[in-house]
Design a protein around this nucleic acid. Structure first.
Lengths: 111, 111
DNA sequence: AATTAACGATCCATAAATAGATCATTTCAA
DNA sequence: TTGAAATGATCTATTTATGGATCGTTAATT
């Protein structure tokens, strides 16, 4: 058990678990062992185990790397279109205000 | 510059940047400052900045937490359905083989 | 145009993640 | 059923991320 526990909301925690499920599913579908995936991702075997378990402390780069290798599609963009997606979105980002002049803490997430 | 650089594929790196864009977009749409988002997420202001920049070293729990607060939908499941999604998927996961008996490194990701 | 809050970057100390090894157990295949 | 490989767990050393503070700059309001 870690010394201190970083609090995470149920939604974020479940999302991490869900992604872990998708990765494990993809790995098994491709007949890859945990060790093989670890090697291809350039990380340790233990880290892949934590990623598949939905550990919220894992670096997002390692998680996305594992996802990419086993073919998990992220944010509705495949390997060929992700970079294009990012690029075209830079323009719309540029139109947004650079600073927010507001003091309301903004209630929250309704979607 | 960090002592060692963790290598990440373009797809994984772009996915992190894309998520950062979505979070920044959501934050600005809700008129929240970086500091306000940081406080609500229980992290530092600097971490929110790195998250929005697409830093691959950020913990996935912190990133998903920020995403949840500003209303970014993860893996086609909203707050009300994410946990249900995870739960119902445990069954299908249980049907998958527990160990992979194969030596092929499996080329990779085509989708 | 002036004011001032928000932003982005950097530095340091500390907390935490990761690698790597080991061991027991499970589970697939012969 | 048996044997070997894969998995899951745990431990320690080391690398790395994070918090918190600070500073110059940018950009919203008035």
């Amino acid at each position: 058990m870690p010394k201190t526990n970083r609090p995470v909301s149920p939604y974020a925690a479940d999302a991490a678990i869900r992604l872990g499920q998708l990765i494990r599913r993809g790995r098994i579908d491709r007949h890859m062992t945990v060790a093989a995936l670890a090697e291809r991702a350039g990380v340790s075997r233990g880290l892949i185990q934590r990623i598949e378990a939905g550990d919220t402390g894992c670096a997002i780069g390692a998680v996305f790397e594992a996802a990419a290798i086993v073919g998990v599609r992220l944010f509705d963009a495949g390997p060929a279109t992700m970079s294009r997606e990012v690029e075209s979105n830079r323009e719309v980002m540029a139109l947004l205000p650079k600073a927010i002049r507001s003091q309301r803490t903004e209630p929250n997430d309704d979607f």
